[in-house]
Design a protein around this nucleic acid. Structure first.
Lengths: 218, 218
DNA sequence: TAGTGTGAATGGATTCACAGCC
DNA sequence: GGCTGTGAATCCATTCACACTA
């Protein structure tokens, strides 16, 4: 009934796009200039048809008989995924995980720049993190102000579970449009905000479930 | 053609089971003794039918007209997911992320006990981590020996991307059956091993993709 | 009345298979 | 011969709708 205009791209396809890009960036320094859908799929455990279908949602990037130009495809995927620009990101919560995330180099490589860090602990406020010399820890009460001032559209939440919903609401109220949540709770966010949760313990739990089927090897 | 015997449970259903359990554990101290599929679904942004269907794959846990007994369902879900026991886990790689994971309390709450930690850096070997006083950092060369000796079936990989595949292979050769991988690469593992990857930068990338559709709020 | 469990219907995503191009 | 792009067919997951139970 309602057509949003986008050509109905499957969510799983977008996830795989990130994996394609990641693999291509890894092999781009190699000798091969092109890659076939079969090769790309094999590297990620997918079928060739899957790879072609995924890419075809976004355009015609390949050459029949040849494959895909690696450099070209990297550029296309970056453009599609939005990593051809710099995104300002806020990091909220400076416990063990938060500090590890602050130090993580992988974000900046993809254009995600942490331009503000927040915590509720007054004793941390005003200091600088070793890995982000140029910015000082701010109190969460400054969140809204800073989000607007620094044009922050993405936030990483690494706060305790009890605070997560409240902080998430402050983020969205301030104009944040995407939240990556590491607290082990489901967040309720407005429909125009995207939320994605990573629950470290749940990840292990899923693995444990699979193991229940098969016996130990020792 | 081949029937593995398992009643074909959708993978997404198992993921949601973890979320059901997480929510129930959070509210179990409250006054309500029961919860309906509608209430549970609402808390997680799912339909009531979805919740009922998911639970029904594993048994008949609810009472018509009443709902589900919270305590009972917690027990059932723990049993189904395998968190009603203790799992020995190895943590490999002690960079920023690895150390944060070592300190993470959430694992033990679900029965995942880190019983060995490894790194390739000789200068770290022999020391103890602040949060895991009782165990000493071992060199990766001791991986196989220790995995067998300590009956380790799950491993958390927090090593650099370049080493990830090699370490993963060492893990599976030693008998590890499940790997939670934080390195930004796709791992190839034997078919009887379960691998699950969390790429922090990819998570943000997915959020960025959604944001490309809508304009900034400022 | 409130709420589960479940077959049937629907909706999505993956795979197939092939026309067309290099 | 090798490989892409894509409709058609298949497979899988979600939603619907209702018989049934407390």
């Amino acid at each position: 009934m309602k057509d949003t205009g986008s050509e109905s791209i499957p969510e799983p396809a977008v996830k795989r796009l990130s994996l394609y890009l990641r693999h291509l960036e890894r092999i781009r320094s190699g000798s091969a200039k092109t890659i076939s859908s079969r090769e790309l799929g094999e590297a990620l455990g997918l079928t060739d048809a899957q790879v072609r279908k995924d890419l075809a949602y976004f355009g015609q990037f390949g050459q029949p008989g040849i494959g895909y130009q690696i450099e070209d495809l990297v550029g296309q995927l970056r453009r599609i995924l939005g990593t051809d620009r710099v995104w300002n990101v806020a990091l909220i919560g400076l416990g063990n995980l938060g500090r590890a995330l602050a130090a993580y180099k992988g974000f900046l490589k993809k254009g995600f720049q942490i331009v503000a860090v927040f915590d509720a602990d007054e004793s941390k406020v005003g200091r600088a993190l070793p890995e982000l010399e140029s910015i000082k820890v701010q109190h969460i009460r400054d969140l809204a102000r800073t989000v607007v001032a620094k044009r922050i559209r993405l936030a990483i939440l690494a706060v305790p579970a009890e605070m997560a919903q409240e902080v998430a609401t402050q983020c969205t109220d301030a104009g944040v449009q995407g939240i990556l949540n590491f607290a082990p709770v489901s967040l309720a966010v407005p429909s125009d905000v995207t939320e994605s949760s990573v629950d470290l313990a749940v990840q292990l739990e899923q693995l444990a479930f699979r193991l229940l089927g098969s016996p130990p090897k020792f």
